[in-house]
Each structure stands twice: as C-alpha cells, then as structure tokens.
Amino acid sequence: MDDLTGFQRDLLYVISDADQPSGQDIKDEIESYYSSEINHGRLYPNLDTLVNKEHVEKGELDRRTNYYAITEKGDQTLEERREWESQYVNLG
C-alpha cells in the first residue's frame, strides 16, 4: 500500500462514494466530516498527490471544473486498508 496520509485516505473514501465529484464537492464533504474549513492549499495538493500516485484520475467537467474518480488502484488501496483495520476493530 502506498504511503498515504490519513487526510489522503479520507479523500479517497469521499471520492469512492461519489460519481465524479468536483473539487468543490469533495471540499464540501470533507469539511462536513472534519467540521472545519479545508483551504484550497491543503485540498488540491493532496488531490494532486492521489492523481500522481494513480489512486485517482482527474478529468474536465468544463473549462473551469475538474472531476475526480477513483481508479482500480485506489479501490484496491481502500480494500487493503479495510482488511488491515478489520484485524484490530471488531465490528460485530
């Protein structure tokens, strides 16, 4: 598994649950979870890291708006994380 920060993993979870969310959609959702404002200087470099590590693909919705979509590698990373967590967390 790639060395991702907790924030980057949280971004992956948000993206995996949405259908090609924009950066603003992701920002709104992650701010709701963290109960605080996430500035662009934190959000977009972390999204770019996920794109560069091939966990997320980035495309254009229009000339001003990009979308993000989880890749197979991103799905695999989340699945590996869930398997690792299940060793330590009893959900039943």
Rank of each mutant, 00 (worst) to 15 (best):
P21E: 07
Q87L: 13
L12N: 02
Q87T: 07
D19R: 14
K27S: 03
N46Q: 03
Q8S: 06
T49P: 01
E29F: 09
E37H: 09
T49E: 05
G92M: 10
G59R: 03
I15E: 12
G41T: 09
Q87I: 05
Q8P: 12
K53R: 06
K53M: 11
T65A: 11
D75M: 13
L78A: 01
I70L: 04
V56N: 09
L91P: 07
L61Y: 11
K53H: 05
L47R: 05
G23W: 11
L43C: 04
H55C: 06
L50I: 14
L50W: 02
V89W: 10
S35K: 15
L4C: 08
A18C: 12
R64A: 13
Y13W: 14
P21R: 12
K58Q: 13
D19W: 02
P21S: 03
G41Y: 15
K58L: 02
S22F: 10
E57K: 06
D75F: 15
Y34S: 08
G74R: 00
R42M: 04
S86P: 05
R9Q: 00
L91H: 09
T71A: 03
F7S: 00
V51R: 00
E80P: 02
L12K: 03
K58C: 01
T49Y: 07
Y34V: 04
V56E: 04
T71C: 02
L43W: 15
G23I: 11
V51S: 00
N52I: 14
K58F: 02
R9Y: 05
G92P: 08
D3I: 09
R42H: 09
L78G: 04
K58R: 13
E29D: 12
E79C: 01
I30E: 09
E54K: 10
V14I: 06
L91M: 10
A18E: 15
D28Y: 06
